[in-house]
């Protein structure tokens, strides 16, 4: 692989951390392959964003177009094809953000490239790049090869590639003509929308009792609300609980929900998928109750109990009441 391209991601005029994490991954891989790192910036106004990029990238290729203000996958594919279409021997790295989740699969077909999504690490086996991914409900790790493809695309799990800025690249920006000028896009952005806010704000809560799919299909929510009340906390949940309409969206912890930073986070019947755990990184004390000793939540928790929550929850509430007197 001669070139590693990093797609800069931005939203509402600001660069997103996924950009830097992708650069961090590129920096560990580039020396192993003797590859050159280039940033690709697709935006409506490159100047403000590229100032920061050239501190870390020696080369930035930029396309400017009004329709690139938001992340339009249709527009992005056309631009990326105009930049990469005639190239081979490359790896394109992008964060596995909700925007890229939409872009990457179609892009890989249009570029005729091999795609590995949601990679949390890389390895080089017999000189060939392999990616680490998680499969089977994120419970099993897999080492995946690109089968010798000359064009590779990989999307990266957020939080997996920590970035240290150097601010020393002193790079330059090469502007390319937008391929979008004459083309009609099949997809247009209309507006942003914020999730509805509710009567509780879990983002500021000090104590959170959080429930996951382990509460079963027809749970008695009062049991968990009662425990939350007894410890003086609020009730929160994982995504499937919101999907099943057991609690409103503003109770959901995680990357597509709310980031919380309580003093204590009590996770009941939550497996600990990274999208969930991504929302509780700021919590100093995580306590998990799960009947599966191998549940990933135990890897981020400080204390764990391997037990059935149906037994544990009433017993715990009882003990807390005793202490409180």
């Amino acid at each position: 692989m001669k070139n590693i391209y990093v797609l800069a991601e931005h939203r509402k005029g600001t660069l997103r951390d996924t950009t830097w994490e992708a650069l961090a991954a590129a920096r560990t891989l580039a020396p192993q392959f003797g590859a050159e790192i280039t940033c690709i910036l697709l935006s409506n106004d490159a100047s403000t964003i590229s100032d920061r990029l050239v501190q870390e990238f020696s080369k930035v290729i930029a396309i400017e177009d009004p329709s690139l203000e938001t992340f339009n996958s249709d527009a992005c594919i056309k631009c990326l094809v105009s930049i990469l279409g005639d190239k081979s021997d490359y790896l394109l790295l992008m964060g596995n953000s909700n925007s890229v989740i939409e872009l990457a699969p179609g892009l890989s077909i249009t570029l005729d490239a091999a795609l590995a999504t949601d990679c949390f690490g890389f390895d080089v086996v017999d000189g060939a790049l392999c990616a680490l991914r998680q499969i089977y409900s994120y419970k099993v790790n897999a080492l995946v090869s690109f089968k010798g493809a000359a064009k590779m695309v990989a999307t990266l799990r957020s939080g997996s590639f920590p970035f240290t800025p150097t601010a020393q690249a002193g790079g330059s920006v090469e502007k390319m003509e937008s391929p979008l000028k004459s083309e009609k896009l099949r997809k247009v952005f209309v507006s942003y929308e914020e999730a509805e806010k509710g009567d509780v704000d879990i983002s500021t809560a000090e104590i959170i009792v959080s429930v996951g799919r382990g509460i079963g299909d027809e749970p008695d929510m009062d049991v968990y609300q009662s425990l939350a009340d007894t410890v003086g906390g609020v009730l929160a949940c994982s995504r499937p609980i919101v999907d099943k309409n057991l609690l409103p969206k503003y109770h959901q912890v995680g990357t597509s929900g709310i980031e919380v930073k309580p003093k204590i986070y009590l996770a009941l019947g939550i497996s600990g998928a990274f999208q969930h755990v991504g929302g509780i990184k700021g919590s100093p004390l995580i306590i998990a109750v799960n009947k599966d000793a191998r549940a990933p939540i135990f890897r981020v928790a400080q204390y764990g109990v391997v037990a059935d929550i149906n037994d544990m929850v009433p017993a715990l509430e009882e003990k807390i009441k005793e202490i409180k007197g």
Binding site: L115, C130, V140, N141, A142, L143, R294
Partner: peptide, 16 residues
Amino acid sequence: RISVEKVFLPPEGEGA
């Protein structure tokens, strides 16, 4: 286009 070369259970690590 991609092929699984190896699967393994994540190490249990430090944890709780």
